[in-house]
Design a protein around this nucleic acid. Structure first.
Lengths: 150, 150
DNA sequence: ATAATTTAAATTGTGCACAACTTAATTGTT
DNA sequence: AACAATTAAGTTGTGCACAATTTAAATTAT
């Protein structure tokens, strides 16, 4: 049979399952923080730069308003963030950490260490893998730009 | 600030976005085949070994019945597969390709080539990346086993 | 043989992810 | 200034993904 159609030979499939399984690893770690994986990503962004608008948040995470609007709504219900309109541009919604959302950062501080411990990976390998993933994304973006040119 | 909580330093985030963006690349390629990405994965399995049961299908793709049951239902509606009960074990549901589902294989034959063309990646790099992803998954499984032991 | 346990699918409920569309604010053009 | 085009969020609808539960069939234990 045509080898190229074999499931295990598809890089997309390996990426897809690796990502799913790593996310599964996060679930029990994030549960005590009362966060899903996607919500955790939003919190990571806000802990880096608080008070950004939804569009910026979306571009950091490659998520559109259809995903982010309800997700942020849930973070508001939990009490980790709050929304407000930007004064200079009434279209923009600013997302800001609450006291509780800020405080959560201390609790989350050990999450990365827990995960890398689970992966049992040394620093050099970790860096090499990060570069590969960055490269894959760069190739995808390059293709996107080549497309746009025509 | 604590570097370990920076979004871009998280291997999970790079995996998550790389997977999402690669899947996005597939969408326009799979649209003419009338398939979503997940449905395409199911078809890949069936083109390899037709007539397997749902549980085997799920273990190949790391998907449970909650995902697969409705997904297969949609493939039946499209007309690519059909279900039947296993005669030796009435619990098992056998999924089989229809004429139309089998024929689709020819149309799908060039999908992998299209994708690797888009990625613009040479064979050696491709192999290296596949090994990385396999290794990440192996580490995740190792952890899972270490857990179970205790 | 009968009861207890396990297993395979399906169902229900929650939360992404994204396309397509709507609404309102802003910017650009004439 | 008035109109067109663009932009930011939100909404609706579809399809995963998975936990938890249910139902029925098959195994195992007693």
């Amino acid at each position: 049979m045509d080898q190229s159609l074999k499931l295990e030979h598809q890089i997309c499939f390996q990426l897809y399952t690796a990502s799913k399984e790593l996310t599964r690893l996060y679930r029990p770690i994030l549960a005590p923080l009362n966060l899903t994986y996607s919500q955790y990503l939003v919190m990571l962004v806000l802990w880096e730069e608080d008070g950004i608008d939804l569009r910026q948040l979306g571009s950091r995470l490659t998520l559109d308003s259809g995903t982010l609007s309800p997700l942020v709504k849930r973070l508001i219900q939990i009490g980790y963030v709050e929304k407000s309109r930007a004064t200079d541009d009434e279209r923009k919604i600013i997302v800001r950490l609450t006291e509780s959302g800020s405080a959560l950062r201390e609790q989350a501080a050990n999450v990365p260490l827990q995960v890398s411990g689970m992966l049992n990976i040394d620093e050099a390998t970790y860096v090499a893998y990060m570069e590969m993933l960055t490269d894959i994304k760069a190739r995808l973006h390059d293709f996107g730009e080549r497309q746009r040119e025509q």
